[in-house]
Computed example of a mutant assay.
Amino acid sequence: MKTSDWLKKYNIQLKKSLGQNFLSTSEYAKKIVKKGSVTEEDTVIEIGPGAGTLTEEIAKTGAKLYAFEIDERLKPLLLERFKEYQNVEIQFIDFLKANISEIQKPKYIANIPYYITSPILEKIFFETPDFQLALLMVQKEYGERMMAKSGKNYSPLSIFVQFFCKVEKVLNVPPHAFIPNPKVDSVVLKLTPKEDIPDINKKGFFKFVHVAFSQRRKTIRNNLKGLIKDRLDELLEKSDIDPKTRPENISIEKFIILYNNYMKLKNDY
């Protein structure tokens, strides 16, 4: 039965407030699962199964699947659709509130609305640091921000994601693959954890990066002057950064050096 038929059967109207654009074609669901090399040996976490199009393709692999769905209206639909699958466990709870810390070495697969992408990433990175990979379907523009190395799309989000992971685009997904059709294209990004994550205060570092980007059109010197006034020039010189450089032109590696030098100067006080 098609996803559209499942929705009609249970008379479910999708909610814009939850960013609900459900993948509706098995063609793209199969491609996504293939990109994750999912096998029966894997444990998969799906965030927001929706009407279950992608869920079904994951379930067919035999992998142990934990799916988290916030919209309880979908409960009868999903329970019926997956009643024959012993390897599927669906929890009707907000993923951001779910206890996932005991799930070991999961693969993540998710079609997520852009407005909660950052908190979802934070939960993945901090609560399951041993995850194998994450395949995230996001709006194209948001995906470009996650992948950017410099320039107008480069942002604290870019640095946050690339600090933890190698990021690559593995699939383009057109609007007609969803119900209802969104106005923008989507992309599937593959996030693979880095083995050599710098040993620094991560939350402190990301807070520092946000300050550095507080006014994008300003120079790094202007944005940081509130943090370390009297030794700012010394900090930038020590970090080999031109004071007139804008934050969008500073690499992640340079930001890490800058932050480490900032902490050393701060501890000297």
Rank of each mutant, 00 (worst) to 15 (best):
K202T: 12
K202S: 03
K202F: 08
K202A: 09
K203H: 13
G204S: 06
G204C: 04
F205D: 09
F205G: 01
F205Q: 02
F205N: 03
F206Y: 03
F206D: 00
F206Q: 01
F206P: 03
K207H: 12
K207V: 00
K207P: 00
K207N: 14
F208R: 07
F208K: 12
F208P: 04
F208T: 10
V209G: 01
V209K: 05
V209A: 01
V209E: 05
H210W: 00
H210P: 00
H210A: 14
H210G: 06
V211A: 04
V211P: 00
A212Y: 09
A212Q: 11
A212K: 09
A212N: 11
F213D: 00
F213V: 01
F213Q: 03
F213S: 02
F213I: 04
S214M: 13
S214P: 04
Q215F: 10
Q215A: 10
Q215H: 15
Q215G: 01
R216F: 05
R216P: 10
R216L: 10
K218I: 08
K218Q: 13
K218E: 05
K218C: 12
K218V: 05
T219C: 10
T219E: 03
T219F: 07
T219Y: 04
I220D: 03
I220L: 14
R221I: 01
R221E: 11
R221G: 02
N222K: 13
N222M: 06
N222D: 13
N222L: 03
N223M: 11
N223H: 07
N223Y: 14
N223E: 06
N223K: 05
L224W: 09
L224V: 14
L224K: 13
K225L: 07
K225G: 02
K225E: 11
G226D: 06
G226I: 01
G226M: 05
G226C: 07
G226R: 04
G226E: 08
L227F: 02
L227C: 07
L227R: 06
L227A: 01
I228Y: 12
I228N: 02
I228E: 07
K229C: 01
K229Y: 13
R231E: 13
R231T: 12
L232T: 09
L232R: 09
E234I: 13
E234R: 11
E234Q: 14
E234H: 10
L235R: 04
L235F: 04
L236H: 05
L236Q: 10
L236R: 07
L236N: 12
L236Y: 04
L236V: 06
L236I: 07
E237C: 01
E237Y: 14
E237F: 12
E237W: 01
K238M: 15
K238E: 14
S239M: 05
D240K: 15
D240C: 11
D240E: 15
D240W: 13
I241N: 06
D242H: 12
D242A: 00
D242C: 12
D242Q: 12
D242N: 15
P243H: 10
K244T: 14
K244P: 00
K244F: 08
K244A: 14
T245S: 15
T245A: 15
T245P: 01
T245G: 01
R246M: 12
P247D: 06
P247Y: 04
P247W: 05
E248R: 02
E248L: 10
E248V: 13
E248P: 08
E248G: 09
E248Q: 09
N249F: 15
N249K: 15
